[in-house]
């Protein structure tokens, strides 16, 4: 398993074999391996990845010292990636990761935080249907309708969908293919859309589901 942190830059389109394909540009890395977790000391194997160099004043002293120990500059974001034992040996603390860990044609998963939509009704949030606009139903057009049955069971079922907060949650988009890789400019281009606003932090990892 491999992964890297980055920022969503925006979408555009490129031509591949005569067809226009929609792509998202991600500015990935450079990232550092900031810590290795092994079975002996942590009970599982993982690497910690840091991204986005910043001023030492911007991060907590605890985090700063954690990075300083290994001569790594101050980084704004830290994130963990589970790796198996063999892969763990291939990483060293302080190692730099860039876009080149992925190759064109490879499949990746992109994890981000979706755009916050605030409190939304059932129609926008869960694709409920609207009620009739006419036949005397003037104020019920976008209402959710019934939330359940009658005296039996006499309550609303758990998990009943309804209005509420929408967006601003962790979203994973699986199996996007890599269209361009440019390590020099830290650019990764994937086919399709990814969650979050432009400038939003995203985590790109090798796809869980291949093919």
């Amino acid at each position: 398993m491999k992964g890297i942190l980055g920022r969503k830059v925006g979408m555009t389109q490129v031509f591949e074999e005569g067809l226009a394909i929609p792509v998202t540009v991600i500015e990935v890395g450079p990232c550092y391996v900031t810590q290795k977790k092994d079975l002996k000391s942590d009970g599982y194997t993982a690497i910690q990845i840091g991204f986005d160099e910043t001023s030492h004043k911007r991060i907590s002293k605890g985090e700063l010292q954690h990075l300083k120990q290994n001569q790594i500059p101050a980084l704004r974001h830290l994130s963990e990636l589970r790796v198996n034992e063999e892969d763990l040996a291939g990483y060293t603390v302080g190692q730099k990761l860039d876009a080149e860990i992925f190759a064109v044609g490879e499949l990746v998963d992109v994890i981000g935080t979706s755009k916050g939509r605030g409190f939304q009704g059932g129609i926008k949030r869960h694709n409920f249907n609207r009620q009739p606009k006419s036949h005397g139903a003037s104020d019920r057009v976008r209402a959710p309708g019934s939330a359940g049955s009658g005296t039996t069971p006499g309550r609303t079922m758990k998990g009943q969908r309804g209005p509420g907060h929408m967006g601003n949650r962790r979203v994973t988009v699986q199996s996007l293919s890599v269209v361009r890789v440019d390590a020099e400019r830290n650019m990764l281009v994937v086919r399709g859309a990814i969650p979050g606003p432009k400038g939003g932090l995203v985590f790109v990892r090798g796809a869980r589901k291949q093919g």
Binding site: V9, G10, T12, V14, F15, V23, V25, E27, R180, R185, M187, V189, K198
Partner: peptide, 11 residues
């Protein structure tokens, strides 16, 4: 426009 997006603009 972001320079990375700019670089993908077609000729």
């Amino acid at each position: 426009q972001h320079p990375l997006l700019q670089s993908l603009e077609p000729e």
